[in-house]
Design a protein around this nucleic acid. Structure first.
Lengths: 203, 203, 203, 203
DNA sequence: TTTTAACCGAGACGGTACGTCACGTCTTGTG
DNA sequence: CACAAGACGTGACGTACCGTCTCGGTTAAAA
């Protein structure tokens, strides 16, 4: 008398991981549409049928793979000041986005287009991915008294990844130290200060 | 005896337009990678060879098509105040991005991925596309004395399309009136004021 | 303590029959290579493993199934004359071959191709199948004194099924009454008479 | 002003031949269902698409290939007597059927099963193949006066290939000299004589 | 006017990946 | 052990699209 009585040979979930791992690696190496299901299967030491038993096509596989991967990647930095932390973490994100992670975003967008439903699923994973890192920074800034508890920081969580990905994927401009400092000093900080009320200037 | 002397039947440039038109239509209807060169040719009543004589591949065709299309779409608004103009034009852009133009951006991103060189080409076209509209708004605001000549507005040209496209294509959140007002009031205006110097607060 | 002492659950031989029955049915319905082991298993309410525990592959299963099926189908006719009996039984055979049994032959040929060894196995089963019916007819004809004991009838056992299956499966000509009479009157009877010696003509 | 105005690049019919040639060769080498479209394409130095542009599937390709091949293979023998000619040509046919040609027949039957229409097409090709050879033999026998003009030989054209293919493909018995002589002496010759009238015995 | 070379439509072609399907094997839990 | 259920590796299938090519035929500048 078992709780879950299953029937037939159970799926080997280690294969799920192997496949997603292979997919992620290839995504970083060759880019979304250069990826071959054959290649994924080969690298995961798995048959194509086994992949298609789990995901209905390439797009679904890739999105799921990226999701799972993204969820366990939350870099933390602690320079000691809001400005320093922001510049540091944005630099990190930009760097990673330029390399492997960038392929994720591209892959996600392409895949999400095919299946609208994947878009929603994507949202949460990406927000989590981007959000948790910044949230920690703002919390520490509040703790240090740099900014007040009342500061509305949500919009920052949107602006930063948006601007960076736009630069990298669309306008193909470099996201260098100078730009990041400009972004932090002239957009983010003023926005936060403004959100703390008119007296923000008087601080 | 001219510098470029050519012999033979001259290229029919009316076909260029027909092809790009077909490409744009299909982009809006089915999305970048569902587009078939066969389908473009069919709709443009043109042979595939005629397309490939003009563009070296699908990506190039699409990017060029979008460029030409974008350049002739610069909506103008004139509400009478910086805030009003911004809210109005952003609303417009967001609306258009949600429909046909949205496919452009996606198409562009996908296409740009394939050929890095296209990215650069893309940059200018998109900046022009987005930029000219906002530029006019800021100029009028300066003329009205709302903001000083010294205001650094370039970064706004980046933030706005970036944030909007991120919402629409990636996080799939709605870009409604409330959000746009939030963006204008709590990010754009503060950023501009800040760029005018410390005395911005005193105004 | 027996010579072959086995341990564990004994094989359920009722499943052997169920599987062969399913195989035969499907053979008649869809033809040899449209048959799926999955389908056989499903119809026999049996698992694929159970089939493969009994036969080493599809070909073996099918041949065995057909063998067992064939052995229990020996129509008997008794018109009262050699000519009448022959025409009658050939008509019957032809009719059955056109329907279900036809698939058998095709199946057999295909199966036999894969594994040469199956050919031999097949031979006896088919001879038995075809042979026993005709043998009875000739015996009665001998008993009636229509033909002598010395008549060599073996070759007839080969010619009749060969010609009929050739018509049905290869040349796709109809095997009608007229043809059968022609075959009996102008080939079979002369052949038998000839086998009884020179004096056959004198009869 | 041309008689046949065609549109588009014309099919390279040399490829038709190359493909069919490759198919025939492979049929002889590995047998019908071991043949891979990939392998055919490779050997014919052609792409798979080119094959599928001409035939809708493997079966159709193979049948057509065999047809074209069969039509140009009509062995001729001339020993000088009906009996000798028959034994000779049957031996030849049997030998060839056991090797390469045998694969044809098998392939044909398998393929014909899938598409009923192919059966008809097959008929003529096979009759021609088998028929023309025997026809020549009987004509010479008539010319020599061995048999009368009235001899009905059509049924022989059916019996011989039927019996031989039955032996080879179904009952897997050898078609040796002894059997062929038996067939000729005890079936074919008596049948022909019988067809010449009752007085045949008196000759 | 004739030549000439590029243009054009149509579609064949080589290539490559796709997603599907069936075979025969294997791995579970249960009887 | 047998058995049901079904995952798994393998390998062929037939399809789709890309970008190239090869035809017959057209078109306008050059000769």
């Amino acid at each position: 008398m078992s709780i879950t009585s299953f029937i037939g040979r159970p799926r080997d979930h280690s294969r799920d991981t192997a496949i997603e791992k292979a997919a992620i690696e290839l995504l970083g190496e060759v880019g979304y549409e250069q990826i071959t299901m054959e290649a994924v299967a080969l690298r995961a030491r798995v048959s194509k049928a086994t992949i298609y038993r789990r995901w209905k096509n390439k797009a679904e596989l890739m999105v799921n793979a990226v999701q799972h991967y993204a969820l366990c990647k939350c870099p933390t930095v602690d320079i000691g000041s809001l400005r320093g932390d922001l510049i540091e973490v944005i630099s990190e994100k930009a760097k990673s986005m330029k390399s492997t992670d960038g392929q994720f975003i591209r892959g996600l967008m392409t895949a999400a287009r095919t299946d609208g439903e994947l878009g929603a699923v994507l949202t949460s994973s990406l927000s989590d991915y981007a959000g948790s890192t910044y949230a920690a920074i703002f919390e520490r800034a509040i703790a240090r008294g740099e900014i007040s508890d009342a500061a509305k920081t949500e919009i920052i969580l949107e602006i930063v990844p948006a601007v960076i990905s736009f630069r990298i994927f669309i306008s193909h401009q470099s996201v260098n130290r100078k730009f990041i400092e400009h972004l932090v000093d002239d957009v983010i900080i003023p926005t936060i200060k403004h959100s703390q009320g008119e007296n923000a200037c008087l601080k």
